[in-house]
Each structure stands twice: as C-alpha cells, then as structure tokens.
Measured scan of single mutants.
Amino acid sequence: MEVRTIKVFTTVDNINLHTQVVDMSMTYGQQFGPTYLDGADVTKIKPHNSHEGKTFYVLPNDDTLRVEAFEYYHTTDPSFLGRYMSALNHTKKWKYPQVNGLTSIKWADNNCYLATALLTLQQIELKFNPPALQDAYYRARAGEAANFCALILAYCNKTVGELGDVRETMSYLFQHANLDSCKRVLNVVCKTCGQQQTTLKGVEAVMYMGTLSYEQFKKGVQIPCTCGKQATKYLVQQESPFVMMSAPPAQYELKHGTFTCASEYTGNYQCGHYKHITSKETLYCIDGALLTKSSEYKGPITDVFYKENSYTTTIK
C-alpha cells in the first residue's frame, strides 16, 4: 500500500517557510505537534488534498525554529505562539472599519479597549522592536488589523473576551517599542525636605499616572512627601515624541487643539466601556464603527496623549 502524501510549508514567522512532505494517514499533531492554519487549530486533523502548498504555523520545537521565533517575536515564552494563534482565530472574524481616516474595530468580545489602543497607536510616533509587531502594525494602518490585535493580546497575556485596560495595554506595548531616546527629568520640591531631581528613561519617561493635564504637570502637581507634608512635583525636561497622561476616570474637559487623542471610560472596574476622542479640525468621538463630532467635550476621561518633541522648564 502506497503512502499518500502532500507537500506543505511549516513556519513560526510566515517569513521562513520549511518544506514538509506530510503523510495523509496521520494527523498534523502526530507529525508536527500543535499546528495552526489561519489561526485555526488543526492539530487533530489529517492532511487533505486542499492543504497542498498551504502554510501551517507550528510551535518552535527545534533550534532553527526557536531562533526564527525569537528573532521575529522577541520572546522565548513557549506558550506565546499558541496564544497568538488562538487569538487570531477570533480577531480574523472582527470587522476593521476605516473611521475618520483611522483603522478602528467594530465592537465584539469586549474589544473596546483594543480599538482605543489601536486608534491611539496610529496617532503617536512609535516604532516597535519585534519585527512581528512592526509588520502587523503597518498592515493594521492599511486596514488589516487582525494579526496586530492578536499579537497585542498575546504580548499582554490576554484572551479574547476578557476586559482590558488601555493604560495597561499601552504599557505592555511600550515595553516592546523603541523608547531608548526618551528621557524625563522631574523635580520634587518640599518646604521641609528641599528639592530632589529624578531622571527617568524609556517607558517611565512617557507615562504618568495622577493627572490628565500635561500643562498642569509642567506647572506642578501636589504629591505627598515622605515627611508627610505636601510637596510639588513638576516637569523639568521632556525628550520624547509623545507623552501619555493618565488618571482614574473623572469628568474632564478636553479643549480642541490642546491634545492629540484621549480615552474615555464609562462604567466601573468590573464592567465598563471605552471610547476614543481625537482632536482634528474639530473633536471626534470614535466608538467602534461609530463616529460623532463636537466642538467641545466633557466626560469621564482616563488617558490623554500629547505630541511632544523637546521641553525644558522655565521655572527657576
């Protein structure tokens, strides 16, 4: 009895394709271990004539594949690729409408935090270190965002349907971005203890939790000093293409032309909904596939993004 075979390709990165001759009487799992086709788990399936010449994702289970996976995804987590594939199996079914010149995501599976993050990423200057993220990001900007969303979920250790947080998501993504040249110098002034300067680099240099107003941050924000008295913390120097200011959701007025974009969060910790506000020729609110415009805006804002380049204080 002759062994019926077909020729397929296996890959971990969709760049390096490895030619395989597979036995049609055995499952993919018996031949390769966990195997995925377009995100779908085909591990328990036997090869079919229609699979001839198709590319299958496999887990990096030998040295060659491990090197290829690390170079593309910059992670050695053995569960990463499987999590990416199972997320992709959902995100490829989502709709990605162009809204006001940006790629958004039609609401499904509690994905409003991903839509808000995706919209924000198209408006701030950011370059990702893992080629996987950078490639998928370019495709997302062009309207094909399924891979990018699935990668975000995998890097953030999230599953489809789980509630997510924009600030946490951005923080994970910033860790995989090139923020080497970003720098922030802060000064804390206390009447009792004097003053202390701190220099922050990388992710810490672009994120701040405690106030939404970048102007206020430049002037000074009140913080408790270690001595128990009130101290003032203010920005001395900022070198970065953008800054992200966050605070627990509270009524906040966004003035046209003073910011790049913002995240609105309605609801409580267990259950809520994100919308995205962007400042173009007027203010726009993007909620999944829905767009509304207004000249002014007041609502429960939790993150505001500002364009920056270089700032030095005039406070002496």
Rank of each mutant, 00 (worst) to 15 (best):
G33K: 01
N129C: 08
T10F: 12
Q195V: 13
K229W: 03
H90A: 11
Y73M: 01
P130H: 01
P224N: 15
L283V: 10
F56Y: 02
H256V: 12
R167A: 08
A145M: 05
A140Q: 00
L37I: 10
N187R: 12
T19I: 12
D135T: 11
G164M: 07
I223K: 05
V67F: 12
T11K: 02
G228Q: 04
D287V: 00
C193S: 03
K106I: 07
N309F: 08
T64E: 11
Q20M: 09
I45H: 00
E296A: 14
C261H: 06
A117I: 15
C271Y: 10
Q175G: 08
G194K: 03
Q195N: 14
N157M: 07
E264T: 09
T27M: 09
V304S: 04
E296H: 13
V206K: 05
S263E: 04
N14K: 11
A205L: 03
I45Y: 11
L212K: 07
C190E: 00
T313Q: 12
E204A: 12
V8S: 01
S50T: 11
P60Y: 05
R83F: 00
Q196Y: 10
K255Y: 08
F217G: 06
K233P: 02
K7N: 14
V236T: 08
E239P: 05
T55Y: 06
K218V: 07
G53D: 13
S246T: 08
L200K: 10
S104G: 08
Y28A: 00
G194P: 06
V8Y: 00
K219E: 07
Y284K: 07
C227G: 01
L283G: 06
N61G: 13
T159N: 08
Y306I: 05
I124E: 03
L119Q: 05
G101V: 00
K106L: 14
I45T: 13
G220E: 03
L235T: 03
C182R: 07
S86H: 15
Q222K: 13
C149Y: 04
K95H: 11
C156Y: 00
V221C: 07
T10H: 14
D38S: 13
G143S: 02
Q30P: 01
A289I: 03
I15T: 10
C261T: 05
V304T: 05
L186V: 13
V3C: 14
I105P: 03
T226R: 14
G228I: 01
H176T: 03
A142T: 12
I124A: 03
F9A: 08
A132M: 06
F70L: 13
C149L: 07
T76H: 12
T116Y: 03
P78E: 10
N61Y: 11
A69P: 05
L118C: 02
D135K: 09
E281V: 02
H90S: 13
V243S: 07
S79W: 10
M209S: 11
T27V: 14
A140K: 03
P249Q: 06
N16S: 13
L151R: 01
Y306T: 02
M209Q: 13
V243R: 05
G82L: 13
T226Y: 07
M85I: 15
T116G: 08
C182M: 04
K229Q: 09
P300H: 13
L81G: 03
F70C: 11
Q196M: 11
V189Q: 14
R66T: 12
V12E: 09
Y284P: 07
A69G: 05
T226H: 10
D77L: 01
P241Y: 01
Q20E: 12
Q30N: 07
S50Y: 11
A145I: 03
T312F: 14
L283N: 04
G164W: 04
V21K: 12
K7M: 15
C225P: 03
A132S: 05
Y138V: 14
K92C: 02
L114N: 00
E144C: 09
A205D: 03
L65A: 10
K46D: 09
A250F: 15
A115T: 07
G288L: 01
N268I: 09
P60W: 08
M209P: 07
H51F: 02
A132W: 02
S86A: 13
I105V: 10
P224R: 13
K298Y: 14
D62P: 07
Q230P: 13
E71R: 13
S310M: 11
M26Q: 14
L212P: 06
E68I: 08
L291H: 13
L186H: 09
C193K: 03
D13Y: 01
F174I: 04
E168D: 09
G288Y: 03
T278I: 07
T64Q: 11
I45G: 14
T91A: 05
V67Q: 13
I124R: 04
S104L: 04
V221D: 06
V185L: 08
Q20N: 06
Y311R: 07
K44F: 14
T19H: 13
L235Y: 02
V236S: 09
K293Y: 08
K46L: 14
T314W: 12
Q123R: 03
N100P: 00
V206C: 09
A205T: 06
T19E: 12
Y84P: 01
K92S: 09
D41T: 09
T169R: 00
S240W: 01
V243P: 07
I124K: 04
Y137R: 03
D135R: 10
F305K: 08
T55E: 08
E52Q: 13
V221T: 07
T11V: 02
R66E: 11
A231R: 06
P78K: 03
V22E: 00
T282E: 14
V22Y: 00
Q237H: 12
V221G: 04
A289W: 02
K92M: 12
A108D: 15
I223P: 05
E71L: 13
I315R: 11
K307F: 06
S295W: 13
S310Y: 08
Y306F: 04
Y274I: 04
L121N: 02
L17N: 14
F174Y: 06
E308Y: 06
Q216T: 10
K293N: 08
Q197K: 09
Q237P: 05
K54A: 12
L290W: 11
